[in-house]
């Protein structure tokens, strides 16, 4: 690379990279220079830093090429257009909106979970928003057919209330009751919504000899948000509930995605009369995309691919998002230092 070539290539570099190069060569003073002076300063140090400058130029060029070959229609690669990158933003936002209405068909995993309950306990660990409630409702329906009572627990009163309303709509208010720490409505109903603490207390009482018909005919215990087992303060209540759960009742544990659902299933199988069936998947029913929004209002994809990278090691930032975030960090760092 001749000096002329180098100087021309430097002029093509984004300001951010120029600043970084300038700082490496001339120290923090470079952070206050304009583009022309920066190039001048870098060139003045080119003798000693030739390799570093060339490396920076090559990396940038390689990134540009990769970007142009990336998903979506090729973008014009000139420096002026790089800033908005309409093609990539278009890809990010493509297909946004309301899908065609479709008749309700349960997913395979939902059917699998409901059917597995006929044979034993079930753990469902799927992403939030997948439709775990459907499994709970169907399982409840089946238990009702067999004249068995159902207990549904959730960690929060607010969630219990939402479920209470939902179940009342489905099964009719006369069949549904709710018990929380300070309120009881229709507590003799065959479907009972409660917080996990309340169920634990009922189980204590039953073990202590107080007769409770609801527990005698108990056919199904649904524990929603069962990842709460790992809550430092309240987790113990979930464990107690599971340990003390009568053996004739089936357990249905609904949980958001967790790291070790097999371990939980193996544990349940080891302490319960029936083997525990695990239903799990990581698939989001509505696909997720990630974007980066700069404080100046510029929106870009967060990752190089529009689809979510499958693991952190494969997560490559979109160059524009990376550039903007680096700029943000430098700006805030600078004001923080001077302020």
């Amino acid at each position: 690379m001749t000096r002329d070539e180098m100087e021309r290539a430097l002029a093509e570099l984004p300001f951010r990279l120029l600043r970084r190069l300038g700082r490496a060569i001339a120290g923090p003073l470079a952070l206050r220079m304009g583009k022309r002076r920066l190039i001048h300063t870098i060139m003045a140090g080119a003798e000693a830093n030739g390799a570093r400058i060339e490396a920076a130029i090559r990396t940038h060029e390689a990134e540009e090429r990769a970007l142009a070959a990336g998903p979506g229609p090729a973008a014009p690669a000139s420096a002026e257009h790089r800033v908005e990158r309409p093609a990539d933003l278009r890809a990010l936002l493509e297909g946004i909106g309301v899908p065609e209405p479709r008749p309700f068909v349960p997913d395979d995993w939902q059917v699998e979970a409901v059917e597995a309950l006929e044979r034993g306990d079930v753990i469902v660990s799927v992403p939030t928003g997948s439709g775990k409630t459907y499994v709970a409702v169907e399982a409840t329906r089946r238990a009702m057919h067999e004249d068995r009572t159902v207990v549904y627990t959730s960690p929060l009163k607010a969630l219990s209330n939402t479920k209470y309303t939902e179940f009342c709509k489905i099964f009719g208010p006369e069949l549904v009751g709710i018990i929380t720490g300070d309120r009881r409505d229709n507590p003799a109903a065959p479907i009972l919504i409660m917080t996990t603490e309340i169920l634990r207390n009922l189980l204590y009482d039953a073990a202590g000899g107080e007769i409770d018909v609801r527990l005698d005919t108990l056919g199904l215990v649904i524990i929603d948000e069962s990842q709460f087992l790992a809550d430092p303060e309240r987790g113990v209540v979930w464990e107690e509930t599971i340990i003390f759960c009568p053996s004739q009742a089936r357990l249905l544990l609904l949980s958001a995605s967790i790291g070790n659902p097999q371990e939980l299933a193996a544990w349940l199988s080891s302490i319960r009369p029936t083997p525990c069936h695990l239903v799990r998947h990581q698939h989001r029913s509505v696909p997720l995309r990630a974007g980066y929004l700069h404080p100046n209002g510029k929106l870009t994809p967060l990752f190089r691919t529009v689809a979510m990278p499958p693991s952190p090691s494969q997560a490559v930032l979109h160059p524009e998002a990376k550039r903007l975030f680096t700029m943000f960090e430098e700006d805030t760092l600078y004001t923080r230092r001077s302020g």
Partner: peptide, 18 residues
Amino acid sequence: GRAGRRGKDSVGFAIVTP
């Protein structure tokens, strides 16, 4: 997980703003 409502959205978005 709160992004993208089944039946109401074809895609959900997680937007990071610094």
